[in-house]
């Protein structure tokens, strides 16, 4: 599943654009950008201070071969999938998908920023949901809140965070969205075996597709 970062860098002889065209989903669109910047301006997180590089700048950095900077950037992880950039792009670049593609590639290379909140949440959510086919909200909260910056279990920090989010939790409970009993195993979808083999098959297909593209 994961790919060796150094190996890839060597394989593409620093032609980072080529690397992403082969390895990242929708990466072949990056070269079509004409640097108008409408994606950057259209992004609802445009004015979020923690955002390093807007899409068009990421694309330019890709062309300039700034590999490490791009792959370790938090930028792709800031995407909220609103698709504003995608619909506005005068070149019809599927920017949302490209950002996800680069993010996913960075993740596979293991160079994505550690505990970047979006990425972290994404990982926890996936692991949680893929287990039973249903999201266990209680375990999701525990996994999200009771870990420190290094990813270690942190009881005191978790309790502090839980108290902060108390009112949200009560609201969710009242609405029937959060059942405290799920701490002891929650609901699941019907065909557990089927679910797992479906996920396995999807992974296989994905790998085949990537291998084909890279070849």
């Amino acid at each position: 599943m994961s790919v060796n970062n150094t190996e890839m860098a060597v394989r593409y002889k620093n032609n980072f654009l080529k690397e992403l065209e082969d390895q990242a989903e929708m990466g072949e669109w990056i070269k079509m950008c004409m640097q108008c910047g409408v994606c950057a301006g259209s992004c609802p997180t445009n004015f979020h201070p923690g955002w390093d590089h807007p899409p068009q700048e990421i694309f330019m950095m890709v062309r300039a071969g700034r590999r490490e900077e791009v792959l370790t950037s938090n930028s792709m992880w800031m995407c909220t999938s609103c698709y504003n950039c995608y619909v506005r792009c005068p070149r019809k670049l599927p920017i949302t998908h490209i950002m996800h593609g680069i993010a996913n590639y960075a993740h596979r290379l293991g160079v994505a920023p550690k505990l970047q909140p979006t990425r972290n949440f994404g990982k926890i959510f996936w692991n949680n949901a893929a287990k039973t086919g249903r999201v266990n909200e209680v375990m999701l909260t525990v996994d999200l809140y009771f870990r420190n910056a290094e990813g270690k279990f942190d009881l005191m920090g978790g309790i502090k965070k839980a108290l902060e989010m108390q009112s949200v939790a009560i609201g969710l409970v009242k609405a029937g969205r959060l059942n405290p009993l799920e701490l002891f195993g929650g609901h699941k979808c019907k065909d557990q075996k089927g679910l797992q083999s479906m996920l396995k098959k999807a992974r296989e297909l994905e790998e085949t597709r990537k291998a084909l593209k890279a070849a």
């Binding site: 640097q35 409408v38 950057a40 807007p54 068009q56 700048e57």
Partner: peptide, 13 residues
């Protein structure tokens, strides 16, 4: 007007 000056990534409003 909202957008980004792409010469050096400067946001404007």
């Amino acid at each position: 007007l909202w957008g980004v000056n792409t010469e050096g990534y400067k946001r404007y409003s």
